[in-house]
Design a protein around this nucleic acid. Structure first.
Lengths: 391, 391
DNA sequence: TTATTAATTCAACTTGATTGAATTAAATCG
DNA sequence: CGATTTAATTCAATCAAGTTGAATTAATAA
């Protein structure tokens, strides 16, 4: 239900408008903020006093630039807060700490094997304990957890080779929250990586983009009208199980010809003749069978990717599509290079400033960083829902 | 750019929260509004005085129901405003007038042949003039125009058999606005039909749904988080040109195997051996060739539709998918009945309240009604953008 | 020096939501 | 049948936060 608002919520929103402008621009003066936010100078001034006092924002020495009183620049204060991001995978748990300005502060990982929540929780707590030993750690804002979806769909979640058991969202959040004493967010890996590109990568100022993440499965993070779209039941973007080849290869979800049967690490492993729970290393590509399998996979993945891009462009009319993958960089590079020419689509405009498709730049930790970004951004960016009294 | 807000915008938003609650519920008392909107009783009271004075809302006699002072019910006032909706098609222009409560007041149509803006404008003005002769016409809020997209894409817009020339959005809006003296909205037909289902049809309370419209082409209206999603360049939902059969039948857009080559009236005409600009009548289905062609089309359209549904469910995680078509009701009915069983997807949940797919209920005028709905809803429903000082 | 300009702050004001008490009109209790 | 309870609504004072126009500050240009 859409509800009303009042002066208090207005203030919360205006604070976020300012912190988000600072996040995007890095460094702005009160006067610049006034122009960008359409707030009055006085309102900006009042809010800045608050934000500085609370430690969210820090002041820099005034810079003389032309006539008039020299303006004082401000930026997000890295010491103002930090978030922990976890990427729970089939074979490892990656943890990172980032500050609100988007700087990674620390990192850890542990090998695991298809971790349930019970398996993972003690390890996660241990990693958090270690992080907390750092003397310079800013106050923790929360914990973001990213793992492969979908969530809460019978016959799709835990069953498949890409799923992890025991993360049935609602109670999982509650358990981690009580164990850590921190706010907790859980999202699927693609949504997290999407937010990672927003805070660390190529999508800092994009309002409409889709992020394709090639992991064990295939997922899309959908960012529309300047915020993450997660769907009615938090499963939006589960592009892996959409049918692209009717009567194609059977998939564990019950369908035939799911996109994920072509574009995913599971599919790659299959082509390379390796078992579904094998951990890929560079070594695997050196054998003739591995080399050949990888090449065959590429040949099949490319048209499927073109089709996926056609679908995403047609439906979302995005500014750009960002692609990253948890596979060897060389292979991902080849895949992306081989995509051209793309299908015709509404995205094909003469006056494009951005490429239709671009590679993500947040690297292999992108999902964990994104999980942290999710927490940071949930505190910093303006959202409709923060203006409403109830949701 | 996301901008700040203030008390004035807060009031505008709260007014819309109230009018939208009335639209959804039909009739509510101040006390019920207070509970639904999370506003205080006093605020609701103040806003209701305004809305009644301005004619948006009307008061009903108090109803005695239990103890306490009998509450006064309110509803949207049909006399408070009306909107004109146009559906510009290859072969006809349909015009309707609706009031803000969603009641159709009048209707007109004219035969045309692939109308450009220049062809259509005088006819539209004439229809508006006739409507204005009605003594009981509420004040006009604006004009909504729906026509097949996409807009402003080279090689895709006017070129194809489903496109109409001369509607290059920006200046078209301006021309109609100055000619009519009314605010003007232009959207693609699927988006309009989508809003039609929201005001008149099955989607009145849905926050996340997709509307598939089978017209000359195929389009999707995308309604997410309680508002229409139109994409970065207003072309979101152009599902017709997404590639579903790589190396399939060539399409005028330059691709092969576009969805629209299978699911659309153009495709139907082709199967029936009729020319692309033929106007379908019941007669055409009585000939053996027509009958056989329609059946063949059905056979091919059904799997394509299943695939489209799989894609939409996977990406959007909607509450439901609504389908309507500008084709004979019997044929659309057969198509929908033949869809089961759908592919597996994240939408397949045990505790579903709504069907995964349902037929639209707004009828053959749905697009024109939707174009009107677009105008009405733009005045009545709360939106993030109405809270921001600039957008 | 003096005038001009841009950034910022001061202080009074305005909009609009909130709060707690008061009023109204019904149903129910004794 | 009058007193009590209850729910809806309004009154009047208050509060939160943005706005406005004037004042202040600190620089450059004339």
């Amino acid at each position: 239900m859409t509800t009303g608002t009042n002066a208090e919520y207005t203030r919360r929103h205006n604070r976020r408008v300012i912190t988000d402008a600072l996040r995007q621009a890095g460094r702005l003066t009160r006067a610049e903020l006034t122009r960008r936010t359409a707030l009055t100078a006085q309102t900006v001034s009042n809010i800045m006093v608050e934000l500085v006092a609370e430690g969210w924002v820090k002041e820099h020495p005034p810079e003389k630039a032309g006539r008039g009183q020299p303006p004082t620049p401000y930026s997000l204060n890295p010491a103002g807060g930090a978030a922990i991001g976890f990427h729970i995978e089939q074979h490892q748990i990656i943890a990172v700490v980032i500050d609100i300005a988007g700087e990674p502060l620390d990192r850890a990982h542990q090998a695991v094997h298809y971790p349930t929540l019970d398996d993972a929780l003690p390890r996660m707590l241990e990693m958090i304990r270690r992080f907390r030993l750092r003397a310079d750690l800013p106050p923790l804002l929360g914990v973001g957890i990213a793992l492969p979806g979908p969530f809460g769909v019978e016959g799709m979640t835990a069953a498949g080779p890409t799923g992890l058991a025991g993360w049935g969202t609602r109670e999982a959040i509650e358990r981690v929250r009580t164990a850590t004493g921190l706010p907790v967010l859980i999202e699927n890996d693609a949504a997290a990586a999407c937010m990672g590109e927003r805070l660390f990568g190529v999508a800092g100022e994009l309002h409409h983009f889709v992020h394709l993440l090639i992991g064990s499965g295939l997922g899309a993070g959908i960012h529309l009208d300047n915020h993450l779209y997660t769907g009615h039941r938090n499963n939006a973007g589960e592009i892996g199980h959409m049918v692209v080849v009717p009567d194609g290869k059977p998939c564990h979800c019950g369908n035939r010809g799911c996109l994920e049967r072509h574009v995913s690490i599971s599919a790659l492993l299959e082509y390379m003749g390796l078992s579904a729970d094998h951990i890929l290393t560079e070594e695997d590509f050196r054998s003739p069978a591995g080399e050949r399998g990888a090449r065959q996979w590429l040949e099949e993945a490319m048209p499927a990717m073109r089709q996926a891009i056609s679908i995403l462009e047609s439906l979302f009319d995005p500014q750009s599509i960002v692609i990253s993958g948890l596979l060897p960089e060389r292979l991902l590079g080849e895949l992306l290079e081989g995509l051209a020419p793309l299908h015709h689509s509404i995205s094909q405009r003469a006056e494009r400033a951005l490429p239709r498709v671009q590679a993500g730049t947040a690297g292999l930790d992108s999902v964990a960083l994104g999980a942290g970004a999710l927490v940071v951004l949930s505190q910093i960016t303006p959202q409709y829902s923060t203006l409403l009294k109830a949701d």
